[in-house]
């Protein structure tokens, strides 16, 4: 009985690690949204830096988990049929964390001066990309437990990504229609695109996830 007990012990541990990996992404998205809100309200203050540190730590923890999951999948030759798909999903999902972290570092280093009239647009955009990222996490979790449900989450990711695109276009148009200096306009546009990039990445991952889940349900 020992080998089968060991097999289930190992299985449970790996399931927990995968869940924990997606917890890190969900948590990062919440902290990211709060950090941007703080920045828009009070600039790169101590609270903003704390949140940035939190996202950085989450990214490091997620990296450790990713390596451990990949290692176990390969060394124990688990899920031979879906191993490539799971590794692909985890690696691309990890890039979301990198995006969150990179975006906050840019705020911290470049300290863009965002005029009052555009702040609401940035806030709305951030909220929308975080929603896309959250739905993606739910879809990724569903891929492991009930692949038939993935499509519903993916649909929401696409909706939020489109919405984010519309907000970013409106925001960029407003920025370039304003009387600001061109370098400042370019700087502000850079941040719009950086935030919007989160939703674009979430949509790319959702597209992959759709194929992975079809393969699992066939």
């Amino acid at each position: 009985m020992a080998p089968s007990l060991n097999l289930f012990g190992r299985t449970k541990h790996l399931e927990q690690q995968i869940d924990s990996f997606f917890d890190k992404i969900s948590e990062s998205s919440v902290v990211y949204r709060l950090a941007v809100r703080v920045y828009l309200k009070e600039g790169a203050n101590e609270e903003f830096e704390e949140r940035l540190t939190r996202v950085t730590n989450l990214e490091t923890e997620a990296d450790h988990l990713r390596r451990s999951i990949e290692n176990q999948l390969y060394t124990n030759t688990l899920i031979p049929d879906s191993r490539g798909d799971v590794l692909g999903l985890i690696e691309t999902a990890d890039q979301l964390l990198t995006k969150f972290e990179g975006s906050l570092w840019a705020f911290s280093i470049e300290k863009p001066d965002i005029p009052e009239e555009f702040r609401h647009g940035y806030k709305k955009l951030t909220s929308m990309v975080v929603k896309a990222s959250d739905e993606l996490c739910l879809g990724a979790r569903a891929f492991f437990r009930s692949p038939h449900d993935v499509q519903a989450y993916n649909h929401k990711v696409q909706l939020y990504e489109k919405e984010a695109d519309m907000i970013s276009t409106t925001l960029k148009r407003a920025i370039f229609d304003s009387d600001l200096e061109l370098p400042r306009k370019l700087h502000l546009r850079e941040f719009v695109e950086q935030i919007d990039g989160v939703a674009d990445l979430a949509e790319d991952i959702a597209d992959r996830l759709a194929i992975y889940s079809i393969k699992r349900t066939v």
Partner: peptide, 13 residues
Amino acid sequence: PVHLIRADAYTRI
């Protein structure tokens, strides 16, 4: 529905 990793263990057994 069973978790993909658990389903793999069941399949092996």
